[in-house]
């Protein structure tokens, strides 16, 4: 790894495409997690009544319990989406960029 190949990479449009795409995915998914989680937290803070109502008249289980488990599952799913995209889109692109810099 030399300064030369680093400079070469910085001039490669594919590199800028990689950064743009990956940053877009990273920040979109991060924002999504923040919205989901803080949506939950804001409900806890300002509308606890919504979370604590039972899911049905015969049940003691509060709605919030399902929401909480849902947030856990959503975190796992979003993590999976990122790994899938990174394995299939970004890794091959990075490989190309590095090969082109070595030329």
């Amino acid at each position: 790894m030399s300064e030369l190949s680093s400079n070469k990479i910085q001039k490669n449009p594919k590199y800028h495409q990689l950064i743009k795409e990956r940053d877009a995915l990273s920040w979109t998914l991060s924002a999504l997690v923040l919205v989901i989680y803080f949506g939950f937290i804001l409900l806890v803070a300002f509308a606890p009544g919504f979370l604590t109502q039972p899911i049905s008249t015969t049940s003691v289980i509060p709605v919030g319990m399902l929401v909480g488990v849902g947030v856990i599952l959503a975190s796992v799913v979003l993590t999976g989406i990122y790994v899938y995209r990174a394995n299939n889109t970004f890794d091959p692109l990075i490989k190309e960029i590095i090969q082109e810099a070595a030329k």
């Binding site: 920040w27 989680y37 975190s75 990122y82």
Partner: peptide
Amino acid sequence: VGWLVGWPIILF
């Protein structure tokens, strides 16, 4: 829940 949601952020 709070303890788990840090993980996606670490990954992204």
